[in-house]
């Protein structure tokens, strides 16, 4: 029955075996450990202000996005889907979330003005 609608998805191969799962696990673990250690010691040298916040906070955000990339690409398997599906999912997020953040950051600057 070739036109049966409940076919499973096309199978896009992720690497054979389970080694890649453990590789991603180690990456997530190491990144989290680095974040926690930095969060506890808060090195003075990273408290320098940059782009309205500290370098340390920027490091935290970059590491978070790195972890998010590995979870979405590998664990959620998005990297191995067709490219039109990858863009269907990621493009709205890549546009809307920075847009929202931008609006709130710029307009939020007025919140203290009218008090």
């Amino acid at each position: 029955m070739s036109d049966h609608p409940k076919l499973p998805s096309e199978h896009h191969e992720s690497p054979e075996g389970t080694w890649w799962i453990w590789k991603v696990f180690i990456i997530l673990l190491v990144v989290t450990t680095v974040e926690v250690v930095l969060g506890i010691i808060k090195p003075e040298i990273l408290m320098v202000q940059l782009l309205g916040t500290s370098i340390l906070n920027i490091i935290f955000i970059v590491l978070t996005l790195l972890k998010a990339f590995y979870i979405v690409a590998e664990f959620m398997h998005l990297k191995y889907e067709r490219s039109n599906f990858i863009w269907t999912i990621t493009l709205p997020m890549l546009v809307l979330i920075p847009y929202l953040t931008f609006i709130v950051l710029t307009e939020g600057g007025y919140m203290n003005v009218f008090e």
Partner: peptide, 29 residues
């Protein structure tokens, strides 16, 4: 009638992704 998958994923999986997309926007809000 379905049967072909333009995005290479089944209906159910695609809708799960769309739900997660909207949920991600809620959390980012």
């Amino acid at each position: 009638g379905g049967g072909r998958q333009p995005l290479g994923v089944s209906y159910g999986k695609q809708m799960m992704w769309f739900f997660l997309l909207s949920d991600a926007l809620s959390f980012s809000g």
